[in-house]
Amino acid sequence: MKRALSGTFALHVIVMLCLVSWPVVADNTESSTASSPASQAGDQAAVLLPTISFRADASGDDLFDGLQSAHLFAHLSKEAPGSPIQLRIYHSVHPAKVDAKNFFSGLLSVGTLGLSPVIMSGEHTMHYEIYVNGQRISRYEYSAKLSRSEYMHGKTVDATHGLGPDGVVWAKSTVDLFLNDLAHDNSVRALNDEYQVYFGALAPAAGIATTAQH
């Protein structure tokens, strides 16, 4: 659904959005404060968010099942284009510097073995953002320094999306961190409260179509 029927962006804004903006990340990051699992369970049980549209890159897409199994995101959906609430997840990396030795050993591998060096060592971050009709209400980031030393055949598709096997395990572990943080997120709680005020009588499964009509 195109939210930007939505008012006329000035041309310069359109251009900048097209060229530079997705994903747009602000600096007003809410702090990712740790919370105890015990309190998490109680808080999350109280909040059941309505249908939320899920949007993610390949790394984030692997986290869908883990999120949907949590009570809070029981209505998380990849097929809810009309939902005003959207969860966006993506992965970014600030690569470690490649020194000359690594660079040339990599080239040697390419030349002699047909292998490509994986150069995605560095600081990896999983980004979780919640938007309501285009307004971001929450953002969390979880970072880890990952080192990859394996080599891959040049034509092999990296099924780990640059994370590496250990990175995939780490990325999945960020789901629990995110759920912990979200359990104490006042913006999400306020969103749920507002949802109850306007649509509380509408259980998503009962009152709202969950498949697109054509």
Partner: peptide, 23 residues
């Protein structure tokens, strides 16, 4: 809106394009 613009570019893993992004 401008304050929050951030340049984003695709990362490469070896000679393969991945879905990762560098911010």
């Amino acid at each position: 809106q401008v304050r929050e613009f951030r340049s984003v570019f695709r990362s490469a893993s070896g000679f393969q394009t991945t879905d990762s992004v560098q911010l």
